[in-house]
Design a protein around this nucleic acid. Structure first.
Lengths: 358, 358
DNA sequence: GTGAAAGCGCTAACAG
DNA sequence: CTGTTAGCGCTTTCAC
């Protein structure tokens, strides 16, 4: 076996042709006589030659690598989105490079942008799921092809979107339709001031004329939902809870259970995303499906269009699907009664705050 | 602002120095007079210059990119391991490139190896968690620095390991200590004939003189555990189940619950990995913690040693930790009695098979 | 079709 | 310390 990598010159020598000819059969850029093609291919196989992407990129000023910039790589939605990008990229002959931006600090964002731009890449897909993603998108040089992936439509950048607001609105409306006076909301860390999930929830309540309760803020870790669940259990006006994602919903349910409440008998809980474990949960979780992998795939396709300048319609969105399972039901009449007084007060409170412009 | 990327020559011209001098301040390879350093840095900032990794790699034959080869990127253990690698790589100034190998087919593995080797990379970290990973490791050229990450120690390759067999043995022993006659086992897809998890389980049973029941094979999806759970419920000799990972354990528990059995009252269930949702589950899941992110970090550090040829001890392992929660308890006396006859028969059966050399 | 010549943007030896 | 001279391995003109 050959230890050192053969070069295109080695292949040319072995095949008895010139270097450019080898390059031609490699790239298929120009026609080469069948006889030579065959000899070149034989030489490539014999020498186990693999072209150097670095040299090729340097000479051609084109690259088959794309970068994914993300605030995280491991959490469900992120990992699935990245997987979708990777699958589509691989199918198109591209390789994926990862750049993680942990915070939205100037320094961290710059570091990430530099790390990304230094690599000669064809384009970047950026997960605009959180503040670091938003910040990175803002700082990315304008001359590099880029596609943003997110839950809310934004202007000025080609993007693939999951219509979170719509899904959240439908889900909340469904809960209201079950007979709940209102629906409480536990947020996951938003990408900016307000997420599509929260917006949709609010919109549904407004449209239904239901009171809009104060939101509860959870982190990304399921256990952050636990404490919130316990607090929620103490408030008898709470009969339905819509959580920003399934993992938080599971934490909230654990907290509710710790407090002795049953789901959905005492409180209905809905999640978001349709995490693979949502249907395994006890009770199986009502949620809104989010096709993250599809988002990633669509994002990459869009990027390909941006790269090739095939700019017809640089936007892609898809309607989400609500999945009704057993964690949601009609409100518990007793609890509804018990909470009535409290809710009344809260409502007045809420009205007051709104009037003051909060 | 400058649209096109500035080159090192532009910087040199602007700073009034030679190109190599700019290179020197860039790489810090040689001393440059403070005055020039300052001018060069100013020029770099003004031109917003970013060196081209492709050119640098081509000229220096060194790269700051590593590849991660994995059979999957999204599942819990995989995603966390990759995250660990990325964090460590980023801290050391490296960028991570992902190569997914979906199957162990020659063609697919070759495609992945070629895609990886074509990029000029400093080394590769390979997730030897499954057959594709094992196959890819086997086909990787010998001259590229490589570190394998897995649950079982193997010879011939620098590697970071999570001692699965030991964790599984301890967990099974713990279950046995609770009074169960034996422990049933649901496997996740193994990396080869037998995983460390299964090996450890078997070892514990053997050491305790407990019968070794037939294993059940689940897939990666939680729902594959569901059907197995239902089947397990029908067999009264089953009082304790050790699952290959937490997600499958959750599916199994759902199946058990569907059949009307309670955990841990009727059947104890233990998982593996300590998935973030394991403690949110009802009941909270007994499991063995697996520090995947740590595995990834250690793997990258090892790779750095392989690259620098600092070959002291190219192996790293860590003792796992068992987490006892509420999904496991002493066996249900009634079920134990009911199952005795069946178990007896199964045991005889098992003994017979073993005698025949299975 | 095909080869010769000229770089791509950078680093690696050299001299000095 | 610093500039000059050669490439790294490939693609891209441009003749023929």
């Amino acid at each position: 076996m050959n230890t050192k990598n053969a070069t295109i010159a080695d292949v040319a020598a072995r095949a008895g042709v010139s270097v450019p000819t080898v390059s031609r059969v490699l790239t298929g850029a120009a026609r080469v006589s069948p006889a030579k093609v065959e000899r070149v291919e034989a030489a490539i196989a014999e020498l186990n030659f693999r072209p150097s992407a670095a040299a090729r990129t340097l000479a051609s000023r084109r690259s088959q690598v794309i970068a994914v910039i993300a605030g995280d790589t491991s959490r469900y939605g992120y990992a699935e989105t990245i997987r979708g990008v990777e699958v589509a990229a691989r199918a198109a002959g591209y390789t994926v490079m990862i750049t993680v931006v942990e915070t939205a600090d100037d320094e961290e964002v710059d570091r990430a942008i530099t790390a990304t731009m230094t690599q000669s890449i064809a384009g970047v897909v950026i997960l605009k799921f959180d503040p670091p993603g938003v910040a990175a998108l803002k700082r990315l040089p304008a001359d590099i092809p880029v596609v943003a992936l997110s839950g809310v439509r934004d202007v000025g950048v080609p993007q693939a979107v999951l219509d979170e607001a719509r899904a959240a609105e439908e889900l909340t409306t469904l809960l209201l339709g079950l007979g709940h006076r209102t629906v409480h909301h536990v947020r996951v860390p938003p990408s900016r001031r307000e997420d599509g999930r929260t917006t949709g929830w609010r919109r549904a309540l407004r449209k239904a004329g239901a009171p809009v309760p104060e939101t509860h803020d959870a982190g990304w870790e399921p256990r952050t939902g636990l404490e919130i669940g316990r607090r929620l259990a103490e408030d008898p006006s709470v009969t339905a809870v819509f959580c920003g994602n399934d993992e938080i919903a599971m934490g909230v349910m654990r907290g509710l259970a710790d407090a002795g409440l049953r789901v959905p008998d005492d409180v209905s809980v809905a999640g978001f995303d349709d995490h693979p474990l949502a249907e395994m949960w006890s009770p199986p979780l009502t949620t809104a499906e989010q096709d993250f992998a599809g988002l990633g795939r669509r994002g990459f396709q869009l990027l390909l269009h941006v790269i090739d300048d095939t700019s017809d319609r640089l936007y892609s969105s898809e309607r989400p699907r609500i999945i009704l399972r057993e964690s949601t039901a009609a409100p518990n009449p007793e609890r509804l009664r018990a909470g009535a007084g409290v809710a009344q007060a809260a409502e007045a409170d809420d009205a007051g705050r709104e009037a003051r412009g909060a």
